[in-house]
Nucleic acid binder design. Structure first.
Lengths: 205, 205
DNA sequence: TGGAAAACATGACGAGCAGCATGTAAGTTC
DNA sequence: GAACTTACATGCTGCTCGTCATGTTTTCCA
């Protein structure tokens, strides 16, 4: 029990706000975007519909806020794990593992739901694009610091290839594809990436 | 104007049935799964709600049928283009292009909508999985025939890597990512694939 | 040619949805 | 401690959805 005898207004505000946003993410992950209703979110956040009405004027605004909340979380998660990467060939493999871990978790599942929904919802799309691009660029920067010996152009290529491959694999995982095959594919890609890394660093053009 | 003075019952049945399924796919592509309602589908197919009621007992059944219809179309499309592939290194690059073309078109967009929806809808999921697996296997077979000199194990790896990368790129395209970068990434991947292909064929382990 | 059956249309029903109006409790300010 | 503001709850309204019951048209068959 959280004995909240006295909470300042700012505390109350932020508390229910994050509760709502977390509940929204949970909803996206568990029931999908199509069935994510305001009522469901309220039920999970243990608040009334009036509360969400007070904090967000419309559902779209809630979703937009959820996108930012979500991205912030993902960013923190990735940053924390990417900070302690070894450099060199083993670093490349480790980075790929981390990217896979990041893009295959529940947070990324929620992002995918929003992405697909945003394709046919211009408002949501406008909210997602800048935030997502910022996440991509920030992650790229951290990754390229690991593989500093590589020409930045090639490091970027490797990064984006990994990200897109990982997203494809995450999609496969969502539908219940064979986990063993995914592991195999990821191992193979790591092998290829390390090989390319070594080629580029030992014999620069 | 299609002057349909006399249509046999079977013709009528099949005609409105495919009209409904095509309309469903259009709906998925244009407004997304969340807003794909029976009414929307009926409006596009120029039929009443009673018609869909007559052909499909529930909406889930319509969706399941749409999945199969969709997969059949995709299969035909891929088969037609994959049939006339050159073999060898240039064949590998061409195959990648074709897979990209297949997985980035409107049909694949509809599939993605259904995929993501199926993640949280067991019924839809059960309908999708076998059909999708069959599509994957069939495409794999056709592709491996092109790269016959490659050890089947490695050809399969290359295929699945390409498919998953392509799906990730397709997702990126849906949100309006930079087309130029996608082209760049695809070119890079083709280079890598051809390189791996040559390595494997000239110096088998 | 008439009647059975299939294909389709029309209208209605209950459920769930988002948004709003209004009421109540908790914190702030003086 | 009383007026005031912010944070939240409750209940309603109009709408859309999927489904169903019933009517109408078209084809088939004897």
């Amino acid at each position: 029990m959280t004995e909240t005898a006295h909470r300042t207004q700012a505390q109350r505000r932020e508390q229910t706000r994050t509760a709502l946003l977390d509940a929204t993410i949970d909803c996206l992950v568990e029931v999908g975007y199509a069935r994510t209703s305001v009522q469901e979110i309220c039920a999970r956040a243990r608040v009334s519909k009036g509360a969400v009405q007070h904090h967000f004027t419309a559902k779209a605004e809630l979703m937009a806020a959820a996108v930012e909340h979500l991205t912030t979380k993902l960013r923190r998660q990735l940053a924390a794990s990417l900070a302690e990467l070894p450099s060199g060939g083993s670093g490349v493999a480790a980075a790929i593992d981390l990217l896979w871990a990041g893009y295959s978790g529940t947070l990324s599942t929620a992002v995918t739901e929003l992405w697909v929904a945003a394709r046919t919802d211009p408002e949501l799309r406008a909210a997602i694009r800048p935030v997502d691009r910022a996440l991509g660029r920030a992650t790229l920067e951290q990754v390229t610091q690991v593989a500093g010996e590589l020409p930045p152009e090639r490091a970027e290529m490797l990064f984006w290839l990994t990200v897109n491959l990982t997203r494809g694999l995450a999609l496969d995982a969502e539908l219940g594809g064979d986990p063993a095959r995914r592991r195999q594919l990821l191992e193979e890609w790591k092998r290829i990436a390390v090989l390319l890394y070594q080629d580029a660093t030992t014999a620069p053009s």
